[in-house]
Design a protein around this nucleic acid. Structure first.
Lengths: 140, 140
DNA sequence: CTTCGTATGTTGCATATACAATCGTAAGTC
DNA sequence: GACTTACGATTGTATATGCAACATACGAAG
C-alpha cells in the first residue's frame, strides 16, 4: 500500500516544497499559503471569494479566514466599485503589490531550491499535472 | 510568476488529491493525514515520533498532536517493551490493523480517481519525485 | 561518577484546511 | 411584483501544520 500510494507521495512532496518556500518567505512576514493567494488575486484581478475558491480549489470558508489575515495585514482590500453582482470583490492594495515585488528574489530562491529537490523533470511533471486540473470540466 | 510557480502547483495538486481520498475515507472516520500515518507506522514498525518525523518529513510537534488523536481512537498505542533507548515507540493496535484492512477498497477507489485526475504519467512522476526526496541525504 | 551535549517530546502560538449548518440576497420563474 | 431557488459568505467544530521555547532524560567524555 505504501508502495504505490498517490496520496502519501503527493502530500510528502507538498510538505517538503512548502517548507522550502516558507523558509525563503519568512523574512517578509508571509507564508506559502498567503503568497499563493497574493499571486492568484494579482492574476485574477478583482474577484470574489467564491471565484478564488473555484480557481484555487480551496474551500470558501478557508478563504474567508485566510483572507481575513491578509486584510488585517493590509495586503488586500474589498473593492467598493464593482460590487454590482453577488459577493464582494477582493483586490490587492498598493502594499500588497509592493510586497509581491519585494518577494520576487525570495521566490526565485525557492524555485531554485525546489528544482534541486524535485528535479527538472519533476518541475515539468508538476506543471503538467496542475495544468490538467485547471483545465478540467467544472466540478460535477 | 503564476506561470511557473512550483509551490502553487504542488499545493494545488495536494489539495485536490487530498480531497479525493478524504471523501473516500470519510465513511471510516479517518482522514487523509491519519491514513498516511497509519500506513507509515505499519511500514516502519515500532518507531518513535522522531523517527516518524524524519521519515515522513513532518514536524515532531505536529506528530505529537496528530498521533494523540489516533491514540484516542485506539488505532495506535505506545509500545511498552522496547522502550530501551530514548523516546517512546508507537505501534499499531489490532484495531488499527483492522481499520487499515477495512479501508483498502476505499483507498483503491481513491487511487483510481487520483489516476484519472493526474493521469498515468502524473502518477509515475509523483512517485519518482517522492522517491527522490526519500533517498536524499539526511537534513544538512 | 559527574558533567556536558544533544536528541526527544511537549506546550504556546499562529495559521491553514474543510465540512456542515446558517443567513442573506441576487436571480430566475410565474 | 411575489415566490422560489441557488449562490455567496460566515460561523461552529475539528483537525492539521510548523516554529520557538522549554523540560527531560539519554549517552558520551573526562
Amino acid at each position: 500500500m505504501a508502495n504505490a500510494c498517490v496520496l502519501m507521495r503527493t502530500r510528502l512532496v507538498s510538505r517538503v516544497v512548502t517548507g522550502i518556500y516558507d523558509q525563503e518567505l519568512r523574512p517578509f512576514g508571509l507564508n506559502s499559503s498567503q503568497f499563493a493567494l497574493l499571486v492568484v488575486i494579482a492574476q485574477l484581478g478583482p474577484s470574489t471569494r467564491a471565484e478564488i475558491s473555484r480557481y484555487h480549489h480551496q474551500d470558501r470558508s478557508t478563504l474567508t479566514r485566510n483572507l481575513q489575515v491578509m486584510l488585517n495585514q493590509g495586503w488586500i482590500e474589498e473593492a467598493l466599485e464593482g460590487s454590482s453582482g453577488r459577493g464582494r470583490s477582493i483586490v490587492l492594495t498598493k502594499s500588497g503589490r509592493d510586497l509581491l515585488h519585494a518577494v520576487v528574489p525570495a521566490w526565485r530562491a525557492g524555485q531554485a531550491q525546489a528544482k534541486i529537490t524535485i528535479g527538472q523533470s519533476g518541475v515539468v511533471a508538476i506543471r503538467q499535472i496542475a495544468d490538467g486540473i485547471m483545465n478540467m470540466p467544472e466540478r460535477a
